[in-house]
Simulated scan of single mutants.
Amino acid sequence: MSNAAVTAPQETERAQHDAFRRKRDQGVRAPQGPLALQTTAWVSEATEIEGVPGTWAPADTGDGLRVTADAAAEIIVDGATVDGDATIYSQTSMTPSSVRFDDRLTATVIGPDHHGRFALRVWDAEAAEERGFQGISSFDYDPAWHKQGTFEPVDGGVEFEYGKSQGGSMRRALSPGTIRFEHDGEQIEMVALPDGDSSLQIVFADATTGEETYDVGRFLYARPRHDGTVSLDFNRAIVPPCSMSDQFNCPLPPAGNRLTIAVRAGEQRPTFGG
């Protein structure tokens, strides 16, 4: 086999990785990207929220929040100026709402949480620039960290516990199965949180965590194939959104996902100017 035949796939993978990095940078800088989140206000009764107009309360419909304001407040919900009451539907509803306060501030609603509450999230489109965001440092692309693993479904799932970056009690979750891959002759096993239809969110830490990479750990997304194989490209491991805004409450790596190996691939930390 010629050298050209060997290097061509690697060059293709590198080009795909470069495209991924560009898209990732655009995403975190977006008007509602991780850097833009300014407020997460959980609402259980009628209240005012610092930095935005209106009175906010749980919606009578039970699937979002209600805002009360007159037209002078210039709150726009789903394209219409609020003059009285308006319902803002959660991002998990069939028809999630959009909220605009001005050219800079927008909002969305998340929830319900385990108390049945919904929260208003306020986003600042100029936050990345104001904070002097320079990018996310990352390891050089390394094709050796694009692993091919296996996914073994488990009837009833694999139960595990994990914490959250803002503390509180441990949460229980079910991984739909077990993910395994090999590194330097060692079989490594992980669990994952379901993420959408058939995608999995792997929250992991490794020997670089807290030293070369972000203290909380990193995320990796994977989609098992029908034959049980799964592509694990650690070059696409990303820092969690709580690394860019303390308004996020990120899952922490469960005990089984705290790897002893050093995964020197993927993102390291967000960087900001002085």
Rank of each mutant, 00 (worst) to 15 (best):
N3S: 11
A4M: 10
A4K: 11
A5E: 15
P9G: 08
P9A: 09
E11A: 14
T12D: 13
E13W: 13
R14I: 05
R14Q: 14
A19C: 10
R21H: 10
R21L: 15
R21T: 13
R22K: 13
R24F: 15
D25K: 08
G27W: 14
A30L: 12
L35Y: 03
A41Q: 13
S44N: 09
E45D: 14
T47K: 10
G51Q: 05
G51I: 03
P53V: 02
G54M: 02
W56Y: 06
A57K: 02
A57L: 07
A57Q: 07
P58S: 09
P58K: 02
T61V: 10
G62W: 07
G64T: 00
L65W: 01
V67K: 00
T81K: 11
D83Y: 06
G84N: 04
D85E: 15
A86I: 00
A86N: 01
S90V: 01
S93A: 11
S93Q: 06
S97Q: 07
S98G: 15
R100F: 01
R100N: 10
F101N: 01
D103F: 03
L105C: 04
L105I: 04
V109L: 08
H115R: 13
G116K: 05
A125R: 11
E126P: 08
E129S: 14
G132N: 12
F133L: 12
Q134Y: 06
S138M: 12
F139V: 12
D142H: 10
H146E: 14
H146S: 14
H146A: 13
K147E: 14
K147C: 13
E152W: 03
E152Q: 14
V154H: 11
V158N: 03
F160D: 04
F160M: 05
F160S: 06
Y162L: 07
G163C: 08
Q166D: 15
S169I: 07
M170I: 10
R172K: 15
R172F: 09
R172L: 14
A173R: 00
A173M: 05
P176Y: 00
G177Q: 04
T178M: 11
T178H: 06
F181P: 04
E182N: 11
E182P: 01
G185L: 08
G185Y: 06
Q187I: 12
Q187P: 04
I188C: 09
M190K: 01
L193V: 03
D197T: 10
L200P: 00
F204R: 00
A207V: 04
T209V: 07
G210R: 05
E212N: 13
T213E: 09
T213D: 13
G217R: 03
G217P: 04
H226E: 14
H226L: 11
D227R: 03
D227T: 02
T229H: 09
T229S: 15
V230W: 07
L232E: 06
D233T: 05
D233C: 08
F234S: 03
R236N: 15
I238E: 15
V239P: 10
P240M: 06
P241W: 06
Q247I: 01
N249Q: 10
N249Y: 04
P251W: 05
P254N: 08
A255K: 08
G256T: 11
R258M: 01
R258D: 05
V263P: 09
A265L: 12
E267L: 04
E267R: 08
E267Q: 12
P270L: 12
P270D: 11
T271Q: 15
F272G: 09
G274K: 09
